[in-house]
Design a protein around this nucleic acid. Structure first.
Lengths: 255, 255
DNA sequence: CGTACGTTTGATCTTTCTCAATAATGGTGG
DNA sequence: CCACCATTATTGAGAAAGATCAAACGTACG
């Protein structure tokens, strides 16, 4: 067994540092934050709409997703989260949660008490700043999703989601070269893009026939990142990486 | 001539106070913030994608909107902003803007220098907190737009946008009873909902035939807020008003 | 080794888009 | 105040993207 108690929050420090440079001292303050490790099964809920958030869950291992249900029961997936991401910055400072957060796969999270975060922000203003910036970048991603769902056809739409996910994985050093494991089913992909599962399936097969993606099992590979980026109309500016401009397949010199 | 120098920032203090209670002292600090008043024509740009934000524009009079263009030139409108709202919390703390902000009508804005905001946050932590909360609520609204565009059919979609706008106007005491002036053309409404202008027109006429809305010129009235809310699948939780639960037509006791 | 879940396929239907034209409206200069 | 122009709103007919319904096929895992 590994020791997530010792390594888990390093991922968070690393993630925050990607968007706002932090001193060694500030990073250390994050790593030593009090927290409780929990192992969760796939589909278990981390937070439900209308809950009062009182702790901040940080994803250590596995994947999670945000979603919201409409009155007629359909589900819109709002984000797919990867290890190192804090799941509750969007809710922690508000009175009640406006969406659900659920594990996608089985995994591990670290729960940090709200008060510990508050104290951290007071003692380390730059960390507070990093949290603000990270929350604003999440908002930027939501805006891009509005654009993606509102304006792009199904082909670009799905390609865009695949590009974003690849790029973010790569940012966190979780991609294996140019291939990666897509942790979601086609039905979930449908709920994330506002399409039906049947149509998602047809689009994936079409992208494959065109040679834009290769798939075996849940593994996805882009034979040409450029062509894919082009089809997806993907411009990573909205992800606000500090070292943007660097080629995605050699980046991550930081930390 | 009125004196927006004296009254303009009161609107901002009022807006922030809606989401996070502020002391008299904190509110005063907002009102006396150094700023420059500018009168702008309709469609003039306040910020462009890739700009480096260095000031915060607060909308004093008139309407503005955020939008983003895709590679093939289509436009997605991301928000419609009303007087009292700060237009740059989403960009001010990031290196470069990821979307455009443009005036919808002619109007007046107050430009606050970035440094003044930074100093304010340091001297008045509760104002910093209010800014964080306000930015998080904007993110919540973007999420709801993802849901709206991703899951609802054109009828609910447009109804939802109309409800949200009515509710927000009312929150800022800008609605005239149950009727209000919708400051956008059907083409802009189309770009906000991911539909075509032609279809928006047909949906509006249908809503009108059903007796869900009355229109003359740009004026919109809901004969029955309940029926409209129902068609729109509108639940104002995502707007995180402190005094939510109060009936929208009698609210605003605060400040 | 069977069962549940996920993927793939086919046929048909619906919503929304596209293209094109006409009708109001509002603002402007004379 | 009126005539004109540019915008905005409305209408119709046909096309297309994506949804729906239904079934078959794989494959992971208990």
């Amino acid at each position: 067994m590994d020791a997530p108690q010792e390594t888990g929050l390093h991922l968070l420090a690393r993630k925050l540092n990607l968007h706002h440079r932090l001193s060694e001292d500030d990073q250390l303050a994050i790593v030593v934050l009090p927290h409780k490790i929990r192992r969760l099964e796939a589909l278990s809920y981390i937070l439900r709409e209308s809950d009062r958030p009182d702790r901040c869950a940080v994803l250590i291992d596995g994947y999670a997703f945000r979603h919201k249900l409409t009155g007629d029961g359909s589900r819109q997936i709002l984000s797919i989260n990867i290890p190192g991401e804090a799941l509750d910055f969007q809710n922690l400072f508000l009175e009640e949660a406006d969406h659900n957060i659920q594990m996608l796969s089985r995994g591990v999270i670290a729960d940090i008490p709200r008060e510990a975060i508050e104290a951290l922000i007071l003692a380390h203003p730059e960390v507070g700043r990093a949290i603000l910036i990270t929350a604003l970048i999440e908002a930027s991603i939501f805006r891009e999703w509005v654009v993606n769902i509102g304006q792009r056809d199904s082909r670009s739409r799905i390609a865009h989601l695949l590009c974003e996910f690849a790029y973010r994985l790569n940012t966190q050093d979780l991609g294996v070269d140019d291939a990666y494991q897509l942790p979601i089913t086609q039905e979930q992909l449908a709920d994330a893009t506002g399409l039906t599962p049947v149509h998602v399936n047809r689009v994936l097969l079409a992208l494959q026939r065109e040679g834009l993606i290769e798939r075996k099992r849940r593994m996805i590979r882009f034979p040409s990142w450029e062509r894919m980026q082009d089809v997806a109309d993907f411009n990573p500016r909205y992800l606000h990486r500090l070292d943007a401009g660097t080629n995605m397949h050699q980046a991550n010199g930081a930390v």
